[in-house]
């Protein structure tokens, strides 16, 4: 029964964002293609004197663009619910906020991974075409932007609920969010500055990996923090979905 409910809610939410998602993915494809064309030209033309700087520039721009697209997924679904009046009536239907938030986050996570995959592919292509490489920077930046995105979502949802003096929120949100933030700040600073040189022709990939274990650690840490934020975000979203008029 729970599976059927989850399937229904996933179908509902995905149908709501499908149209905009399609449009954005086409736009995104065009943008990434453009980047693949521009980057080699810039690289050859010496757009930025430093290759590391060029990598960082492309990494941040592409990751920011992808993350900005993802922000709209959540807003699209919320806005559709608001416009249709579903938000006003959903408590009359037999599912809890937890069920709905679970379905919403499943879709969100899948889109995050698909966009992450596109980013990886794009950065690999550009790295192969240019003198510089930015896969690490792009992935780190993408994860960091996703963390920011999730954090803004948590803040947005909880701000509304705090007005309604939601007691449960304090327990779920404040302590874990503070811990996550403490862990995340150093990774934010280091992650943005993390960039790796292109794999030299005669370097063994294992050796290369061992040398850049620090970069991997940052990526992993940011990923863990993102998972934590997604967990907290899901709980806060469930609380907001369950919120009743006071």
């Amino acid at each position: 029964m729970m599976d059927a409910l989850n399937r229904s809610l996933r179908f509902r939410d995905f149908s709501l964002i499908k149209r905009n998602l399609k449009l954005r993915t086409i736009l995104l494809g065009c943008f990434l293609l453009m980047m693949c064309l521009i980057a080699p030209l810039m690289s050859a033309g010496g757009f930025l004197s430093d290759d590391d700087l060029s990598g960082m520039f492309f990494g941040i721009v592409i990751a920011a663009f992808l993350a900005a697209f993802l922000t709209n997924v959540e807003y699209d679904a919320d806005k559709a619910d608001e416009d249709a009046g579903w938000k006003r009536c959903r408590l009359a239907f037999p599912y809890s906020g937890t069920d709905h938030a679970a379905a919403r986050y499943q879709i969100k996570t899948v889109i995050m991974f698909i966009y992450g995959g596109l980013l990886f592919l794009c950065s690999v292509v550009i790295s192969a075409l240019c003198r510089f490489s930015f896969t690490g920077t792009a992935i780190n930046c993408y994860l960091l932007f996703l963390c920011l995105l999730e954090l803004s979502c948590i803040v947005r949802r909880s701000a509304g609920m705090l007005l309604h003096e939601h007691r449960q929120l304090k327990r779920i949100l404040i302590v874990p969010a503070s811990l996550l933030l403490l862990l995340w700040v150093p990774s934010l600073l280091r992650g943005l500055l993390q960039n790796e040189p292109a794999l030299p022709d005669n370097t063994d990939p294992i050796t290369y990996l061992a040398e850049h274990i620090g970069a991997l650690y940052i990526t992993l840490l940011t990923f863990v923090i993102l998972c934590g934020l997604l967990y907290v975000g899901r709980k806060v979203t469930a609380l907001e979905f369950d919120r009743r008029d006071s």
Binding site: M1, A4, L5, N6, R7, S8, L9, F11, R12, S15, L16, R19, A80, D81, D83, A84, G85, W86, R88, C89, R90, A92, F93, P94, Y95
Partner: peptide, 26 residues
């Protein structure tokens, strides 16, 4: 429950609504 205004989204059709409610109601 039947509300004074339809709380279903404009993008759905009657078949979609069946697919949604199928999972909600045993």
């Amino acid at each position: 429950v039947v509300f004074d205004e339809l709380p279903f989204h404009d993008v759905f059709n009657a078949r979609d609504m069946a697919r949604i409610f199928e999972g909600m109601y045993p």
